[in-house]
């Protein structure tokens, strides 16, 4: 009975969520959890709405609850994906990457009964990339900081200011001083502003001290020819060319041909390119900031 009532409340919550009534949706999910707290989906749905409300710490807790219910081996890719988003927003790129990779693995090798939406692989793959970049930047700043670098100090200060401004927006959103649309506009504005300042600082340092700060290009062989992004899970075709798994899969779903030669090619013909993956990993581990200009 309690489970049934909880399901009803969850459905109402989903409707509110689709209508953009996030506070209402969160309340409904909370009531659902009070009725019945063993359904992992209610927690993931509440995590999703909490991400929208920028309640990132609460979203982390919901995801962890959801994952605990579904068990260490259970399929719960959405919970891992939302967890990664919240962790990234909270500025924990290491944890975010590990959650994003779990989500990606679970979609790549789903359990038989799992519901996977066709866009999941691509979405999760690009989120893995986003986390890798964030981790890369964090590691690089750490390296500069150890050298007592002024640039790292300036970037840290801007980062602090950005987090502070974002929290302010989140507070205003939660206390209803700002609506969903305004809050997300303000959020975006703060991020854009931050990125502009960072790239200005980098340009100045690159001009002043080219040997340490000049942008370099990511080596071509690590770049996916479809998205033009560095790869993290490269696969090789029969003709010896490598692509990011998620993007080539998306192409093959529409047109089962090799992008370069037009020979017939299916997803089952793809093989992981382990050597290139090692090279990509090495690149991601290198922690040399010079590439960031490219992003």
């Amino acid at each position: 009975m309690a489970a049934y009532q909880a399901e009803q409340l969850k459905e109402k919550g989903n409707t509110a969520f689709r209508n953009g009534e996030y506070q209402e949706a969160e309340n409904l999910y909370t009531q659902a959890i009070q009725k019945h707290s063993r359904n992992p989906l209610i927690f993931t749905n509440r995590a999703n709405v909490r991400l929208k409300l920028q309640k990132n710490n609460d979203a982390v807790n919901d995801c962890l609850n959801s994952i605990e219910i579904s068990g260490p081996k259970g399929q719960n890719h959405k919970a891992f994906y939302f967890l990664a988003q919240a962790q990234l927003a909270l500025h924990h790129p290491h944890e975010a990457l590990s959650s994003a990779l779990t989500a990606y693995e679970q979609v790549l090798h789903p359990q038989p009964a799992a519901k996977i939406s066709p866009k999941d692989l691509e979405t999760f793959s690009s989120f893995v990339l986003k986390c890798k970049k964030a981790k890369f930047i964090a590691r690089d700043r750490e390296r500069l900081r150890r050298q007592g670098d002024l640039r790292a100090e300036l970037e840290d200060a801007l980062e602090c200011q950005k987090q502070h401004d974002l929290e302010h927006v989140a507070d205003q959103l939660q206390s209803c001083q700002l609506g969903n649309v305004e809050a997300s506009e303000r959020h975006q504005e703060i991020l854009t502003n931050y990125e502009t300042k960072i790239s200005e600082i980098r340009a100045v340092f690159a001009a002043a001290d080219p040997s340490n700060h000049k942008p370099r290009e990511v080596p071509d062989h690590l770049i996916d020819m479809i998205t033009f992004e560095p790869m993290h899970d490269p696969v090789i075709t029969k003709n010896g060319h490598s692509y990011e798994r998620a993007t080539i899969s998306e192409h093959l779903k529409r047109s089962p041909t090799d992008p370069l030669t037009r020979d017939p090619l299916t997803i089952n013909d793809l093989r992981p390119n382990l050597g290139l993956k090692a090279a990509c990993d090495e690149f991601w581990q290198s922690g040399a900031s010079e590439w960031i200009g490219e992003w």
């Binding site: 020819m225 479809i226 529409r254 047109s255």
Partner: peptide, 8 residues
């Protein structure tokens, strides 16, 4: 067109 296009 859709058949002839390639993402590269």
């Amino acid at each position: 067109d859709a058949q002839g296009w390639s993402p590269v």
